[in-house]
């Protein structure tokens, strides 16, 4: 029991670190990597709860999260490349305009 709680605690810590990274970093790629880290933290919580419940639903959910993350990373990196092409930096503070 305590084991699962500690894994959920680890998941929370990783999620919080990722959230801090999204807030304080300005490089869009690093922000993207921090989002991936937050997704992973949630996946760890899913796996821990799956072990706790004794069924595989949590692990299937993690599988689908991975599918979404793969699609999201392809589109996100394409957006970052488009941002760089328009606006020669990828700093989020330089992308303050919504249209150009």
């Amino acid at each position: 029991m305590s084991s699962v709680v500690s894994y959920v605690g680890l998941s929370l810590v990783l999620f919080a670190i990722g959230a801090v990274g999204v807030c304080i970093r300005r490089n869009a790629i690093v922000v993207f990597m921090c989002i991936e880290m937050m997704l992973n933290a949630v996946n760890l919580a899913f796996v821990a709860f799956s072990k706790l419940q004794g069924n595989l639903d949590g692990q299937v959910a993690v599988f689908f999260v991975m599918v979404i993350a793969a699609a999201e990373s392809a589109i996100g990196l394409a957006i970052i490349i488009a941002l760089f092409r328009n606006n020669v930096s990828v700093e989020t503070t330089d992308a303050a305009q919504l249209k150009w």
């Binding site: 699609a71 392809a74 589109i75 394409a78 490349i81 488009a82």
Partner: peptide, 13 residues
């Protein structure tokens, strides 16, 4: 979803 991701990435870049 993966198909939409592929098409979207190609279209954006």
């Amino acid at each position: 979803v993966l198909l939409i991701g592929i098409v979207g990435a190609v279209m954006l870049s």
